[in-house]
Amino acid sequence: MTPLSNFQFMPPALSKLIESLRLLPGIGPKTAQKLAFSTLKMSTEQVKEISESLLDIKTQIIYCESCQNISENTNCNICIDDKRDSSIICVVEESMDVYVLEKSGAFKGKFHVLHGSISPVNGIGPDEIRIKELINRINDKPEIEEIVIATNLNLEGEATAMYINQVLNNSKSKLKITRLARGLPSGSDIEYADDTTILHALGSRVNINESL
């Protein structure tokens, strides 16, 4: 389908908005058109609020000096929270993963965001993500006892976890390094599980009394 923005009758301002919206991930030409036309129906205040919010995230949000998560201050709310366990750090790929883990309420330690995973085929090596910052943080803080590596469960995530493990084993031998357990997702049928998942689920099986 030819996007409407290509038609000459469209006012340039609307056409420009459609093209700008298309820069966002998951927004195709049709969705961009729908959003642009919806914006036309909104009040000036509402549109102003949206545009100001968009600008704010670029001007006000920085990276936390300690955990590299997005924050409005030099140190994020999680890092300055004294109630959280400073001896355990959970390493995640993206800031979004922090919010997913926080929502579960199961983790009370602190985080470290790598902002990606090692993907040599796509030109992303260990120097392109924030592994160096993690190593410096561990070396500077002797109270850290455990690192939980919560990178994604694909080959890039696994390679990242292995690389961190290799570097940390060389630098700080007493550190406990753990990886998130792998297995069947809640509510799924074993019938549809793949061999790799079954293999890991059997390997990480737990005593029924401990799991209940």
């Binding site: 085929v121 080959l155 290799q166 061999d195």
Partner: peptide, 23 residues
Amino acid sequence: MIDNYSLLKKDLSMISIGFYLLE
């Protein structure tokens, strides 16, 4: 899945060679 090369994926140096061959 025909072959996941799961044993190969347990070693970082073999993963790195694998990535190189694929590229």
